[in-house]
Computed example of a mutant assay.
Amino acid sequence: MNNISTLIGEIVDVKTSGEAIFRGTLIEVGQDIIVLFDDENFIYIPLLHVHRINLSDNIDETISDPNEASLKKIEAISYRKTLLNAKGIFTEIYVTGGNSLHGYITEVLSDYLVFYSPIYKTIFISLNHLKWLTPYKQNTTPYTLSNKELPVNPPSIPLLHSFEEQLKKSEGKLVVLDTQVTSMKVGVLKKVNNGFIELTIVNGENIYLNLDHIKSLHLP
């Protein structure tokens, strides 16, 4: 347990990667994750993406105590345990760009997870690049879709142990990287080698992207 735990029960401001700032009551601190409650939702933030935590300077602000946790209680909370606990629960997550993703975690592998979204369907997301997640309240679904429209058990797909191996499996296919339909993030994945991805973009040019900075993979 780190010294951040001294702030448990206090209203804090948390600045994260992507310049996002969250304000809420610090509910729990794990070895690699913190939990906030912002009066409506629980927000789970990996410490990897926490830039700053400080007491809120709004001394008149109050936040009610949560009635119940959005995920079942974990004795020793951690990032991985949180993800496993969230499997099958409708969840909002943020990875990159201007919009969060809505759907649910279906699998958690060694260094990536599989997320099923009504918009993108199956997305492979690097664990190093998930900035935060917020489980929906019970009996809530994204866009009020039914289980038929957003199935809890989507068709199973072969999964490999690591994110890099899953990328290699997509060689020769049209891919969208980082859920960003831009000229430099959409193309045919030609090769994954020596930490770089070779991508043929729409004009036929080959570009090379550093694998460490690839946040997600989607096959349209």
Rank of each mutant, 00 (worst) to 15 (best):
I59N: 02
I59T: 13
I59M: 07
I59W: 06
D60F: 11
E61L: 12
E61R: 10
E61V: 12
E61I: 11
E61T: 10
T62N: 00
I63N: 07
I63C: 03
S64R: 07
S64F: 04
D65I: 05
E68W: 00
E68A: 09
S70P: 05
S70E: 04
S70V: 01
L71P: 01
L71C: 09
K72G: 04
K72V: 10
K73N: 12
K73A: 15
K73R: 15
E75Q: 14
A76V: 14
A76I: 13
S78V: 14
Y79G: 06
Y79M: 08
R80K: 14
K81V: 09
K81W: 07
T82V: 11
L83P: 09
L84M: 09
L84H: 04
N85W: 05
N85G: 01
N85I: 01
K87I: 14
K87A: 02
G88H: 11
I89C: 13
F90S: 15
F90A: 10
T91R: 14
T91G: 14
E92I: 11
E92D: 05
I93R: 11
Y94W: 10
Y94I: 12
Y94D: 00
Y94E: 01
V95H: 00
V95Q: 05
V95P: 05
T96G: 01
G97R: 02
G97S: 00
G98N: 04
G98H: 03
N99R: 12
N99V: 06
S100H: 05
H102P: 03
H102S: 10
G103V: 00
G103F: 06
Y104H: 15
Y104E: 15
I105F: 00
T106V: 13
E107K: 13
E107P: 02
E107D: 15
V108K: 02
V108P: 01
L109Q: 12
L109K: 15
L109T: 02
L109Y: 06
S110D: 10
S110C: 01
S110I: 10
S110F: 09
D111V: 05
Y112R: 11
V114G: 08
V114E: 13
F115S: 06
Y116L: 02
Y116P: 12
Y116F: 14
S117P: 01
P118V: 11
P118S: 09
P118R: 13
I119Y: 07
I119E: 04
Y120R: 11
K121C: 07
K121I: 03
K121Y: 10
T122R: 13
I123M: 08
F124T: 06
F124Y: 13
F124P: 08
I125A: 02
S126K: 12
